[in-house]
C-alpha cells in the first residue's frame, strides 16, 4: 500500500466519520443552533469528499453555496424565529420515533442491498481531472442549455417570491375600489382557530 493510497483511505474514513456524526447531530441534538453549525460541518466534509472524487469545481461550489449561503440563511432564520418554546409533550413520541427508525432501517437495508449487489460497470473512462471545469461549461452551453436557462427563471422567481412573502410592509386596501383588505383568504375561517381571542397566544 503506497502512501498516496493510504492517505486517500484515511481521508475518506475521517470525512465519512465527520459526515455521519454531523448528520446524526443535525437530527438528534436538542439545541437547534448546534444542529445548524453541525450542518455546516456536514457540508464541509461533503466538499472534502468531492475533492477526493476529483471534482474541485463542485467542491468549491459546495462550500460557497451550501456553507456560505444556505447554512448562513438557516442560521439567520433560527435567529429570527428564536423563541425558546418548551415543546409540548406528545403521547407516544418515543414509540413513533422507534417505529420510524425501524422504517428507515428497512429503507437503508434496501438501498444498501441495491448499492452492493448491482454490478456497476466500473471502471469507466479515465477521469479528466481538472479538465472537468471546461467540460462542465461545455455541457452548460450545449446539451444542458435548456435547464441552465430555466434555472435562471427558477432563481429569479424564488428571489421575488421570497421577498414578497417575507417583507413586512403591506398595503391594506383593494387598489381598485379602495376598500380595506387584509391580505388573507377571502373565505374567512368560521371554526375557532387556535389563536382566536378566546384562546389567546400561549
Amino acid at each position: 500500500m503506497t502512501i498516496a493510497v493510504s492517505t486517500q483511505l484515511i481521508c475518506f474514513l475521517a470525512l465519512s466519520a465527520t459526515l455521519l456524526i454531523g448528520a446524526l447531530g443535525v437530527v438528534l441534538l436538542p439545541n437547534i443552533v448546534y444542529a445548524a453549525f453541525l450542518l455546516g460541518g456536514v457540508f464541509l466534509s461533503m466538499a472534502g469528499l468531492y475533492l477526493l472524487l476529483n471534482a474541485s469545481f463542485v467542491a468549491a461550489a459546495q462550500v460557497l453555496i451550501y456553507v456560505g449561503a444556505v447554512n448562513v440563511l438557516i442560521l439567520f432564520a433560527i435567529m429570527l424565529v428564536n423563541k425558546r418554546e418548551p415543546l409540548r409533550d406528545m403521547p407516544g413520541l418515543l414509540l413513533r420515533r422507534l417505529l420510524s427508525a425501524a422504517v428507515c432501517a428497512g429503507l437503508l437495508a434496501l438501498l444498501l442491498r441495491v448499492a452492493l449487489t448491482m454490478p456497476w460497470p466500473t471502471p469507466g473512462p479515465a477521469s479528466i481531472g481538472e479538465g472537468a471545469v471546461v467540460r462542465i461549461a461545455e455541457h452548460f452551453f450545449s446539451d444542458y442549455l435548456l435547464p441552465f436557462e430555466l434555472a435562471s427563471v427558477l432563481l429569479l422567481m424564488a428571489m421575488i417570491g421570497a421577498i414578497v412573502l417575507a417583507r413586512r410592509d403591506v398595503m391594506n386596501v383593494d387598489v381598485v375600489t379602495g376598500e380595506p383588505a387584509d391580505q388573507g383568504l377571502l373565505e374567512k375561517a368560521r371554526t375557532p382557530l387556535l389563536l382566536s381571542k378566546d384562546n389567546p397566544r400561549p
Binding site: L154, M157, A158, G161, A162, V164, L165, V170, D182, Q183, G184, L185, A189, L193, L195
Partner: peptide
Amino acid sequence: VSSYLLAGYMKRDARS
C-alpha cells in the same frame, strides 16, 4: 417552487 409561493401568497392568513 412557484406553486409553494402561490399557495402562501395570502401571507397575512395563517391557513395560507
